[in-house]
């Protein structure tokens, strides 16, 4: 229970951080990704700042045998650098540039109730479902 409360608190803090930093305003994100119209590089600082803080957490983590509350360390794989990784990042980047929205800000700003975010999140969940279907079809084709 304590574990879930911490995950919840992390989500609240994450949402507030995204909103305060401007990530929940598509026009600001587009202002970062489109340098032709007066480039606004401030979001790069948001990312650098978050990485700076979070990198310290990994230093701490490397000295702990297991997480403080529960479970075991679950770090994603560092390899391979394959076509799926590259292709997925290409598609995500194109979508990000077209809409100015990525998954965290979408799931935060959704609760502002705008039609834009409702449409985007519905489409994003649809895209994820499409991926699951595609992957199952691939698995069948591979026999």
């Amino acid at each position: 229970m304590r574990e879930l409360a911490i995950c919840f608190a992390s989500g609240v803090l994450f949402a507030v951080g995204l909103a305060v930093s401007g990530m929940c305003q598509p026009a600001k994100v587009i202002g970062f990704l489109d340098p032709l119209d007066g480039w606004d590089p401030s979001l790069a600082l948001v990312m650098v700042g978050a990485i700076g803080v979070h990198a310290l957490a990994y230093v701490v983590a490397s000295r702990l045998s297991r997480p403080l509350v529960n479970g075991v360390w679950r770090f994603p794989a560092d390899w391979p650098l394959d076509r799926r990784l590259f292709g997925g990042a290409v598609l995500f980047g194109v979508g990000w540039g077209l809409g100015g929205v990525c998954p965290g800000p979408a799931l935060t700003a959704l609760w502002g109730g705008s039609i834009q975010m409702i449409v985007f999140v519905a489409a994003m969940v649809g895209g994820m479902a499409l991926f699951e279907g595609w992957e199952r079809a691939q698995a069948r084709a591979d026999g």
């Binding site: 990784l85 997925g88 994003m124 895209g127």
Partner: peptide, 14 residues
């Protein structure tokens, strides 16, 4: 369109 690309792409690219 953007949402579909973001959803599919982030899952494929993990």
């Amino acid at each position: 369109v953007s949402g579909v690309l973001v959803g599919f792409g982030t899952r494929l690219g993990a």
